[in-house]
């Protein structure tokens, strides 16, 4: 099966490992006999709501994020329609912030976002930096851990009733206070966990692939065959240990 990925602003939002996350999706799809086709989508490029099975939005430094923010905000309808139609989405760090309602700067300015996730981000005084461990329950009854690294000044405040990606076991999370991290709408996930998130958390890569495949085939999502994943498990084990010992303290 061919899985069509729309990678938004790869020239601007590419800080750390965004290409790694795509490489993981590509390789894990290939190992199951599927092909990942990645379309880079730049400022002004076309984004049709039904053209992609999975959308990816990475993170960038402030300057790069500001450069693409108006373009992304203008695509709100197309992105919400794609997600409502069952497309999977992963947004990391800056991409996660910009897919909310907007970002309020310390000077009171407001940068509108794409309005997919029910949250608003407020610039904070200090950066929240460190290793993170989350507990997620994306499918009822299936609790799984996610190990990553966060580095953000923004405090993201979820609307009441908005579903987080996970509960913070160690680290700061969305705002350093609520105990939640990330946000989920259907098969769309947003998170502050940047860097090589998918390489050491292969279950999440498979979760996204399963939903992207379901969108591509038009059938109910099915579990992908397990892979050996020994290196992945070891990398996860060490990263989770780091979060336990030195993750941010709320």
């Amino acid at each position: 099966m061919r899985i069509r990925v729309g990678h938004l602003y790869p020239d601007y939002l590419n800080i750390y490992a965004d290409r790694g996350n795509i490489a993981v999706l590509s390789r894990r799809a290939a190992l199951r006999g599927h092909e990942l086709v990645v379309d880079p989508i730049g400022v002004g490029g076309a984004l049709e709501p039904d053209a992609h099975d999975l959308l990816y939005v990475g993170g960038g430094q402030d300057r790069e994020q500001a450069a693409i923010a108006p373009d992304l905000a203008a695509r709100g309808d197309a992105i919400r329609e794609a997600v409502a139609g069952g497309a999977a989405l992963l947004a990391v760090c800056g991409g996660y912030q910009l897919l909310g309602r907007g970002y309020r700067g310390r000077d009171g300015s407001f940068m509108p976002g794409a309005g997919l996730f029910a949250h608003e981000t407020v610039a904070g005084e200090t950066r929240m930096i460190g290793d993170v461990l989350l507990e997620c329950e994306l499918d009822p009854g299936e609790r799984r851990l996610l190990a990553g690294f966060e580095n953000h000044a923004g405090r993201t405040l979820l609307d009441s009733g908005a579903e987080p990606l996970g509960r913070v076991v160690h680290g700061f999370g969305n705002d350093g206070e609520s105990g939640f991290e990330g946000c989920r709408v259907d098969s769309a996930l947003g998170t502050y966990l940047h860097g090589p998130l998918l390489p050491r958390n292969p279950w999440l890569a498979d979760w996204l692939l399963e939903r992207a495949l379901a969108h591509a085939t038009g059938e109910a999502s099915e579990r992908l065959a397990a892979l050996p994943d020994e290196l992945e498990e070891e990398a996860f084990r060490v990263a989770a240990g780091r979060a336990r010992v030195r993750g941010g303290r709320r």
Binding site: I15, Y16, A17, R19, G20, I129, G130, D131, F149, N151, H194, G195, P196, R242, R246
Partner: peptide
């Protein structure tokens, strides 16, 4: 660097 993400760049 406590964040090892940079190796992907």
């Amino acid at each position: 660097g406590r964040d090892v993400s940079w190796i992907w760049d």
